[in-house]
Write a protein that binds this DNA or RNA. Structure first.
Lengths: 234, 234
DNA sequence: CCAAAAGTGTTTATACTACACCCATGA
DNA sequence: TCATGGGTGTAGTATAAACACTTTTGG
């Protein structure tokens, strides 16, 4: 450790791994890069850190730029720093992952960036180390969701329990016993049953639930163990 | 997101939160800064990212510089980026936390940096945002250690169960029931009992154990739940 | 022989898992 | 009426928590 003189400047970028859920599947929002290097290749949405903003601010700015959304779930994932990860200049990138309600984003904005939602299983090859970022984000999503109630960030205000189960099954790529799943979920006391039903997926209809926001905030930090044998999936 | 031209360069630093365990208490290794700004103030050990190394490499380099140790437990914690966190120049810092066997580090090296081990409860005020880094590292240590077997990184090859319990009690600042603790620990099958005893802390002596390195690697990813009601401590 | 730390078992309560049938409804 | 998805209960097992006494041995 020496003084500050003569340290080669290094560019600092942010990349966002944006997850959405369409009611059936987990999806990833990708853009077609409009500039060199790697023009027209699929990529995560990203940008550079500006002189007077923090990384969190930059990530929020970049997310809003693409989706029009503010105040969504955003979490710093990891800084990626392989020496030649960006062929143009030495750049490190701090990856953030975001969970958004896919129905809320503004399509016309994301059209500017030629953005598309991809199933994780049908994700194209991405530029630089973005595949690695996505893989880590997926791992972190599984890890975190096994312990903490975060997947609700992907759902609209009102959602049904079968929807929620779909979501969990998508994240862990497996099936859960619906009786055990429901019981565990409701036993947290996080959910408020609504009078109305969602009849879009069955004749009988499934009751809507809302999150109890108060309790939700309190239990963010608690270990809830929604996922049976969670360590098998990590 | 634009092209690469004219992005203000930002310095990239690394800071290491170094934890050790002396058999009784968790300690933190701090240095007295030998250069401006904040000369002679207590600080984490840090340095700048060099053009041809990754962040992980830089963290390892910095750690070795201070302790002489290589191959120790080191984990990227978070990137800190408040705009004025460093008064000299715009610098973001990627914090790493390290777990080392306090008996293995080379004192003469750390003497060069005027390094000292501090009890967490007696930590002096640190420069910049280093207090925040330490707080986050402590939180992450509790979080991780509640779920994964990592605290062994702080112990020598051979250790006793009472030592281990001391360590856990130090991390969570509480006391555990020794019967339940021992049973849970041994039920993992991670430990190999040695013939010899450590007689330094009692007349009866406590048996040494070693980690089963094979099983240890396998179970790194498993949830082990060593800490009763772990969510109370997070 | 006694102080000080190490080591050990049992009981109870809670949480998890496996498992299968009835319900409501629109077509 | 029937096909489709939604909703519910129980019994067995495993895990966790609470709890106190005996063992060893150096001084």
């Amino acid at each position: 450790m020496t003084n500050y003189a003569e340290h080669s400047p290094i560019l600092v970028a942010i990349d966002c791994i944006i997850f959405g859920f369409d009611g059936n599947d987990i999806k990833l929002l990708l853009i077609k890069r409009g500039f060199a290097p790697a023009k027209n290749k699929w990529s995560l949405m990203g940008g550079f850190l500006l002189p007077n903003e923090t990384l969190d601010e930059a990530a929020n700015r970049i997310l809003k730029q693409l989706t029009g959304l503010e105040g969504v779930y955003l979490e710093q994932l990891n800084a990626f720093s392989a020496v030649n990860r960006d062929p143009e200049e030495r750049t490190i990138s701090v990856a953030y992952f975001a969970l958004i309600d896919i129905h809320k984003y503004e399509k016309q904005i994301s059209d500017q960036y030629h953005a598309e939602w991809f199933l994780l299983s049908q994700k194209p090859k991405l530029i630089f180390d973005h595949d690695e970022m996505v893989a880590l984000a997926q791992k972190q999503l599984r890890y975190k969701a096994a312990l903490h109630p975060i997947l609700f960030e992907l759902l609209p205000d009102k959602f049904t329990i079968p929807q929620l189960q779909n979501l969990y099954e998508g994240v862990y790529d497996t099936v859960f016993d619906n009786r055990n799943f429901t019981r565990k979920l409701l036993s947290t006391g996080l959910f408020v049953k609504q009078a109305a039903k969602d009849k879009s997926t069955s004749k009988k209809g499934a009751f809507y639930y809302k999150l109890d926001k108060r309790k939700y905030k309190v239990k963010q930090a608690a270990f809830l163990n929604f996922v049976p044998k969670a360590d098998k999936f990590l």
